[in-house]
Every structure is written in C-alpha cells, then in structure tokens.
Design a protein around this nucleic acid. Structure first.
Lengths: 191, 191
DNA sequence: TTTTCAAACTAACAAGTGTTAGTTTTTAGC
DNA sequence: GCTAAAAACTAACACTTGTTAGTTTGAAAA
C-alpha cells in the first residue's frame, strides 16, 4: 500500500477508473483533472497526451501478462497441468488489477499509431503462446483433436471477462474463480 | 435481401458499422451522416437523437435474443440437450448480425436513462433463463454440482465473444462454431 | 395543376474537445 | 536564504460536439 501517492500515480489511477466506467473517448481531460484535484493542463506535466496515458495503462498490463506467463515454469510433462498453470497466471494478473485489465481489454482500440500496431502484435504473440500449449497437447494426445484456434478463442473469452467478477463483489476469491473456470475448460479438452 | 433501402435503414446500418469500428462516443453525427450520404441534421428526420439510434440498435438485438430463446422448445428431458439448444440459438442470433451484436455487447453502457436501466434489467432476466437451466440440470443430476453463477458467467463470456469470429472471415461456419464451443462447455459440466 | 407533407438542406448556437503558451507557486538542493 | 527545477496555474486557440430553427426540394394525392 502506497502511503503517499505522486500526482502522476493519481492521474493514472483516476484515468483507469474513469476510462473503465465511461470509456476512453467519453472521458475529457478536464473531467479527469477535476477528479484528481488539479487543472487539466497540469496533466501535461506528467503525460505527453491523452493517448500517452492510455498507452501507459495498456502496455503496463501487457507487460504484466507476459511476465506472469514467463514466470510460470511447469516441470510436469502433462499438458493439462501446463495449461492450467498459465490459465491461473492469466487470471491472477486480471485479479491483481481488474480496473486496468478492463481498460486493457476494451479500450486498446483507441490507441494511436504506432502504439496500436505494436499492441496488436504483442497480443497476437501472447495468444500464440497459449495456442502452442494446446497444439502440443493435442499432438501428444493429452487433449482431444480439435480446432485449436476456435478453442483458444473460447478459453480467452472466458478468462478475459473475469475482471467483471471483481466489480460488484460477490465474495468470489481469485482461487475459486481460477479453479472453477480452469476445471470447466480443461474437462472440455479431455481426450 | 432488401433491394431498396430507406434512408432510415441506411442510417441504422451505417451507425452499426461505425459504432462497432470506433465506439459510440467516438463517432460523430456529421461523420455518420457523411457515410450515409446526407447532412447531419437530416438524421433527425428519422431519429430523435444519437441516443435514440443506439437505443434502437440495442433493443432490437435484445428482442432477437429473447425471441430465439423462447422459440427453442426442447421436448427432450436431458438438460444437456436443453442447454445445447439455447446455446445454439444464442450463437445463431449473433451469427445473423455480428455487427449489431458487437454494438449490443460493448456500447450499451452509453445508453441514457431510462433505457439504460431497462436494458440492464432485460439482460439480467435473459441471463437468469440460462442460469435456470443450469441449476435445474444440477438438481436433477445431469450436471455436476458447481457454482452455477460462475459457470453461467464463463459460458456467456465464451458465447458473447463469438461475434469476433465473423469479422476477419476464417471460413468458420456458424454450425462449426456452435458445435465446437457447446461441446467444450457441455463436457465441462458433466457430472 | 395545386396542395401537402416528408425529407432534405443551410446556418447557427452553446458547450465541450485536446492542447499550447506564458506565468506563478511550490518544492528540493546547496 | 538563494537558486533552479518541477509542477501547478490562467487564458486562450482552433476545432468538434449534438442539436435546433427555418427554409427549400421532391414526390405523391387531390
């Protein structure tokens, strides 16, 4: 817990909150500034532009997803275990910051170039890491034969919506969410 | 296929396209009008306001989802069959209009009151129809015991993202999508 | 041919947009 | 306490926003 908060941090946190609540395009700089407790032009002492702010939010999250994936080393040979581990890591990142995650998933389209292009590329690479596990699992016989692209899509869709579960708190723990959802999906992959 | 298209229809279709591509808040009335081939104020001969336009798009889709669900009468007693049938109906509605579906799922938050309230209520009711099938299936023993709310959430997340599959066409048929995804999910529910 | 009405138009308003310039205040280092 | 830099401020620009008022056009009904 940060005892003190720099203005820059406050701007970023407030932007995350407002962008999530109302969408990037619908939030004005004056409104953002007011919520922070400063005047709009003061924001430009910390961020080059509105787009720059969105860029930082989105790319910070992207980095977290990659880091969580790469940190997940599974020595076990079973692909069910491997997939479950990265699913949990993915859900864990979302759980650690549902607000920024929602912005990441829903507002990236407002990024200007060249960031937008880089973002799409990174997201594709990340998705391919998952697809790779599924494909290898199918090849080895751990998973049934299937349209891996379609299945990976369905899995991501279920995982990426989990930010919604932390909004109006229903006393669902991250562990419970990760366990139930990965169980549902992994069972469906059984060969 | 409509051979001729009224201006009102053209406005609605163009709005669906633009709202999907760039988001409701980022699309201006002048831009929408230009794409239709008229001037901005002419739109007001057909729609009361920008919000009115979004309202029509969203509530038309809502009606289609309800209609498809209610039309799905399954005489079979197995809840797997019942659930599979409504899943397919749901995916079918999305497939029949992926563009409007995407607006429906992602832009409803820009609805003004009282439409926003009504929309939320309808969506909740619709989701409860699905939850109801799952709960009854669990009670009867067709599905394993589980957190039905969480599972319903995951199922909806997977289904509602399918509009994305029709965007950059990958030669995926609606039947293939519905079959693969419902298989994945139903297997995970097995008792 | 005249009347009527819907649907297009032009002009404009009031408010809001992101952002820059220039200035003052606050903070930190010596 | 003095200096330098960071971070706040006010004022403003050029442009866009949704929408209204008032007018003209085009086609159908009489």
């Amino acid at each position: 817990m940060a005892i003190t908060q720099t203005t820059k941090e406050k701007v970023k946190l407030t932007a995350q909150k407002l962008f999530r609540e109302r969408g990037y395009a619908a939030v004005g700089m004056r409104e953002l500034a007011k919520e922070v407790g400063i005047e709009a032009p003061s924001i430009y002492n910390h961020y080059k532009s509105k787009d720059d702010l969105l860029r930082e939010i989105c790319f910070d999250m992207a980095q977290q997803f990659f880091a969580a994936f790469d940190k997940t080393v599974v020595t076990e040979e079973k692909f069910q275990r491997k997939l479950k581990a990265v699913i949990k890591a993915h859900i864990g990142v979302i759980a650690s910051n549902p607000e920024a995650s929602e912005v990441f998933f829903n507002e990236w389209m407002f990024l200007g170039q060249p960031h937008l292009g880089k973002f799409k590329k990174m997201r594709f690479e990340y998705e391919m890491k998952f697809r790779d596990i599924i494909d290898k699992g199918v090849k080895k016989g751990d998973f049934k034969k299937m349209n891996s692209k379609l299945i990976a899509f369905a899995i991501f869709s279920a995982l990426n919506a989990t930010y919604d579960l932390y909004r109006s708190n229903e006393n669902l723990s991250q562990e419970e969410i990760a366990e139930d959802i990965s169980d549902l999906l992994l069972k469906g992959l059984k060969s």
